[in-house]
Computed example of a mutant assay.
Amino acid sequence: MLNKKKSRLLSGKKTLLLLFIAFASNCFSQKPNDPKHENHYRVIPTINTDELSIDFADQHSQMEFTKMKIKITNKTDDFIVFKMGENDFIYEHSTFNPKEKMVIIDPKESISKTLSVNGDTRFHVEKFELKLKGFYRAPLNGDVHNAENFKLPPESNGFSAGPFKVTHKSKALKKESRITNAKFKCTYSGQHIGLVNPYKLKVKLEDGQQFPNMNDNIKTKLLLPGKSYGFNTVFKISTKIIDMQFANMEINWNDMFVESKLSKLEDISVSFELDPGKTAGKNK
């Protein structure tokens, strides 16, 4: 008799435990009609073109947005410009665009960004299409804008080379026997894109000898209209050749300032479909 009571008691406790687990699961799991419920989409294989490699991660939607991570690798020796606002998120009910932002990808480099849309309450869908329309190639070759040599010690605070305005930071000038440092700021005011390559400049002595910029922390910079780039020059010359502290020198810019034009790449269409298993797991 006692064993039967114990058995019924244990059975009752087990039933209560199962009911509690079911209740807790129901409380803490997000339902499809919950505004915070997330639809997660199937894995997209890496997309490869001649110019780009594109990977997606964590693509998902709630009622008020669709969001994903995108990694873009530039395979070319040119710059790639990604205009985020030109890309279309296409749903059955409408098409949406991300906020406008330009992303610059250096040659042979990668960047990772978040791509998202909002502004509605109907993003919680099982499928949609993304049309990547915002990729542009920026060739390193273009129209060269020459500038007159810049004297050291300087006779002016700056100069212009076509749409490039360059300002010399005179207080930062360091002119010593074995090393000379000079700092500049370049602003591009054209309508296309500006390319500034400080590796091309050299310092020229009065006898015609020229020596390269020894600053290792510089690179070719792409400038959108109105943008600026600050760069340093570092010249090192043996005192057996000249004492730079007392020398008259000039910076020869050597085709450093180039204006180029963007060339649009082909559109890329990507289809996203619901992943039921991942969706269930992410909403526990």
Rank of each mutant, 00 (worst) to 15 (best):
P212Q: 04
D106I: 08
S238R: 04
K31N: 09
K219I: 07
M1V: 13
K227E: 15
Q59N: 07
V234W: 06
H124S: 14
N217L: 12
N197H: 06
G277T: 15
K36S: 14
G85S: 08
N181C: 05
V125Y: 00
M249D: 06
K108P: 03
K171D: 11
S29Q: 08
N146A: 12
N217A: 10
K236P: 01
K5E: 11
V258K: 02
W253P: 02
T279Q: 06
C186S: 08
S260R: 06
N118G: 12
K221D: 02
L115D: 05
S7R: 10
D216W: 11
T180G: 00
I105K: 01
E259L: 03
S25C: 11
L265H: 02
G277I: 14
N157W: 06
L140G: 07
L201V: 05
I21N: 02
R137F: 05
K284A: 11
F28P: 00
V103L: 07
I72W: 05
I179H: 03
D243N: 15
F20I: 15
F235T: 12
H124C: 09
V81T: 08
L17F: 09
Q191T: 14
D120Y: 06
F89P: 04
Y229T: 11
V203K: 00
K67G: 07
N97L: 09
I193Y: 06
K108H: 12
I111Q: 04
T279S: 09
L18K: 09
I90R: 12
S170A: 12
K278Y: 10
N283H: 07
F96Y: 14
D143G: 00
S177R: 13
I72C: 03
H192D: 14
I268M: 03
N39W: 07
L140V: 13
E109C: 02
V270D: 02
E273C: 02
Y41K: 06
E100W: 10
T187L: 10
E148A: 11
E273V: 15
F231D: 05
K282L: 11
P153D: 13
D34T: 11
A247K: 01
I47Y: 02
E155M: 07
I111S: 01
V43D: 07
T95R: 03
N26L: 13
K202P: 00
D267C: 08
